[in-house]
């Protein structure tokens, strides 16, 4: 039964223009990340050439080759920013759409006259939404591979493994936001309130919590090369202990480790940074399953 509900929801998501636009947007930003990576590569080559000429004219030795400082997968460093920004918003909308249509169109009343439990129903919806995101990320992965081959000319099995790991991590991160979208739709009766509450949660996770734990200003969250968290203030020396709760920071740290774009750290440390995201996802799933048992499907939700 879970499979049937998931298949039906997948069909609805394919027909939803908003979800489709979100999918195309994700593929487009992956391509943009590739173009930016190519531009970065090209700029470094040109700046290096100019620097060599300048140093030679001044009678100084040539500067070190900057590509020795630039990891192979650094081309994708912008994806580490786009996934928590654009991907998470897409995940919210997908989770929201998965739940609200049945509520506002009164389908819930009809559906539960059939042999289907609420747990099966919720799991089917979660499965469909996360499967949609998985397919989206597979598409993004293909675009990333094309971009890497176009710029670096080669892609080692190790890099392919890292790339796969990055997208698996991203999928688990986005699953959290799918569940946020579903949960807010179950908690409120008005569509707009549900969507805006979910966006409120996203704003807090993405911008407010990192400022609390690491002193990162909102616009600093947009740059793939953020400065290390300042711990000069006594306040941040205390709040940095809460950094494991900041799942966006944990995601960025884990993504940097997996892609090899941040200083090497032990595997156990990388695994530990993924744990908060998994705990958040599991906790939200439990909340969704608990909430759906109490949801009153006899009342239609407001379309507003």
């Amino acid at each position: 039964m879970i499979g049937t509900i998931a298949s039906q929801q997948s069909l609805l998501l394919r027909r939803q223009h908003v979800a489709l636009v979100g999918l195309i947007t994700m593929l487009a930003v992956t391509a943009i990340a590739g173009v930016l990576g190519w531009s970065s590569h090209h700029t470094i080559v040109r700046v290096f050439d100019q620097a060599v000429r300048l140093q030679a004219a001044a009678g100084q030795p040539a500067p070190p080759n900057p590509f020795l400082l630039k990891p192979n997968l650094s081309l994708l460093s912008n994806m580490v920013v786009y996934i928590p920004l654009i991907g998470a918003l897409l995940a919210l909308v997908v989770g929201h759409l998965s739940m609200v249509d049945d509520q506002s169109k009164g389908m819930g009343r009809l559906l539960f006259t059939r042999q289907v439990t609420r747990t099966q129903y919720a799991l089917g919806k979660v499965l469909a939404a996360t499967r949609f995101l998985a397919l989206t990320l597979v598409g993004c992965g293909v675009v990333s591979i094309v971009a890497l081959l176009a710029v670096n000319r080669t892609l080692s099995p190790s890099d392919l493994g890292r790339l796969t790991g990055f997208y698996v991590l991203s999928w688990s991160y986005l699953a959290v936001f799918v569940l946020v979208g579903i949960l807010t739709a179950l908690l409120t009766r008005r569509r707009s309130l549900a969507l805006l509450s979910a966006i409120g949660v996203w704003l807090v996770i993405t911008f407010v919590v990192p400022q609390f734990t690491s002193g990162l200003r909102p616009t600093q969250s947009l740059n793939p090369l953020t400065e290390p968290a300042g711990t000069s203030q006594a306040f941040f020396r205390v709040t940095q202990h809460a950094q494991p709760l900041s799942i966006v920071e944990q995601y960025k740290t884990a993504a940097g480790n997996i892609l090899g774009t941040s200083p090497t750290s032990p595997t156990t440390e990388t695994v530990l940074t993924i744990v908060p995201t998994l705990i958040a996802g599991f906790g939200l799933l439990v909340l969704v399953l608990w909430r759906i048992q109490r949801h009153d499907y006899a009342r239609s939700a407001s379309d507003e």
Partner: peptide
């Protein structure tokens, strides 16, 4: 911001090139 030439490497491209 990402296209800024100096933002291409952590710590700054120009600094990495000793400029």
């Amino acid at each position: 911001d990402t296209l800024d030439a100096d933002n291409q490497l952590p710590g700054g491209l120009f600094q990495a090139l000793g400029l």
